[in-house]
Design a binder for these strands. Structure first.
Lengths: 265, 265
DNA sequence: TAAATCAGTTCCATTATTTGAAACTTGATT
DNA sequence: AATCAAGTTTCAAATAATGGAACTGATTTA
């Protein structure tokens, strides 16, 4: 009764293991991986050997732990340059960050999550540790909600179903219903806020980057603190951000950007 | 006559192909890959299918081209957090960048190349497009020379043998001999310059990050333009950079990942 | 001090996947 | 319609992966 196999042979299995190593947010021992793995001991062992030899994972022989390897960092740079919005949005993001003097993020929707692909630190940086490659939740970030609000019906439903609705703060939206109604609001208004929904004291305003065919390509947000801004003063930045996202969309059109990643959910 | 096997079965072959895709600095067609590949058509085809399905490469069906996929960007973030110096050096790099007001790079030596793992843009940024994950040449960058100068004899020779000595500018060192003598000089002096050796108008000063056992862990550089600085004014920053690299080395010594919380399964 | 326990590694006959030459399909060009 | 190039599929043979069990070596327990 062969199910429609989802795994790509040995390569798929190796990448399963790679994901597992990535899933632990710290270096991890063989036995920990084994106890969380479906693979038999010898198989897991050999896959890790292969991955280590290939430098996709690095093995700390002193502590006997595995973590992801630097080869991924090198490869990711190439991925980022060729498959993300970041290179073509660069000058626009630079200009926006310079003018508003706050932290600017460029993000894309990926696997039901927000994938940050670029970032500019303001002169007065907010104390958050983000970087290209970081992923965040959709339901409680400005860019996440902005991108989702303008996504197609089908994708929107699928992504909502994937959310965990963890209540990070008292303001976090904690149900699909609340999120759906917020998304309608955002769609009507044209932009999204994050009103301390992910982290206390951190607020942001975000707009989607829409292609000519109204496809969501990504999102841009300006993040600040409640000490420096409130929602009204952030809203005042919307026209400036709008021109940024319009320009990025235009650039992307001209660059004939690879392909919308139809957010394989 | 089995050669000492270098490849890790199917996974190794798939990663060969991944490297090949990364090697083209643009989206690439199947036939281009095929003509540069040792693998037969059907094999290459299936490996690409697998990689695409796994999102390590993305396929632009409109233009029929392959490029690296965003899954790598997600994975790399985890690699960067756990296996690079960047997270533990973060606050020191921030402080340095703030004080000197110029672009600061944090790099590590990897495969005979300079791997940039972090970067801070100055208030007055130099016009260069770098990012975590970018690799650069050792022989004509400040960090590259600083790290190499303090590496062990064996590694130094090995890395020198790997250099291509492309003359980017009139100042580029173009021979192993010239590089070796420069490295001696750097070792004696304790820091390295990049005197427009990679790009005209761009100069930098760099120091290695040395562990307690005098192992090279990475390097830190301050980059500027000839319009704003000369080698003498950059040299004046050395004591400040020295304290940064000392602090980073100390941090790295102490760094331990948060202890495991025994998972309730 | 021996025995037991645990973490990691290797073995090897069995099983499953990968291989690649060739045939085929598709789409563009003559 | 015929030709050509690019991409895709087939299938028996070749190869690699599998995993239960046995082994090692380090630490803990009796």
């Amino acid at each position: 009764m062969a199910q429609p196999e989802r795994s790509d042979g040995t390569v798929g299995k190796a990448l399963d293991v790679l994901d597992q190593v990535a899933g632990f947010d710290r270096p991890v021992r063989f036995s920990e991986l084994l106890s969380h793995s479906d693979y038999p001991k010898a198989t897991l062992y050999r896959l890790l050997q292969t991955l280590t030899h290939q430098e996709l994972v690095s093995f700390d022989s002193e502590r006997q732990t595995y973590s992801l390897g630097m080869r991924l960092v090198r490869l990711a740079h190439s991925a980022w340059r060729h498959s993300s919005l970041a290179p073509m949005a660069r000058s626009q993001i630079d200009a926006l960050a310079g003018e508003v003097g706050e932290t600017v993020h460029l993000a894309q929707l990926d696997h039901g999550q927000v994938l940050y692909v670029d970032k500019r630190n303001a002169a007065s940086p907010v104390d958050m540790f983000s970087q290209a490659g970081k992923v965040g939740p959709v339901y409680c970030t400005g860019v996440g909600k902005a991108m989702l609000a303008f996504s197609g019906q089908a994708q929107q439903m699928q992504v909502i179903a994937q959310q965990s609705f963890h209540p990070f703060t008292p303001n976090t939206l904690v149900s699909a219903e609340a999120l759906r109604s917020e998304l309608e609001h955002i769609r009507a208004r044209g932009y999204a806020f994050d009103n301390e929904e992910h982290e206390a004291g951190i607020i942001c305003v975000a707009l989607p980057i829409l292609s000519q065919t109204a496809q969501v390509m990504g999102g841009v947000s300006v993040t600040s603190t409640t000490a420096r801004h409130n929602l009204a003063t952030l809203a005042a930045l919307v026209p400036r951000i709008q021109s940024t996202v319009d320009e990025i969309a235009k650039e992307a059109q001209n660059w004939r950007f690879p392909e919308q990643i139809p957010a394989t959910v």
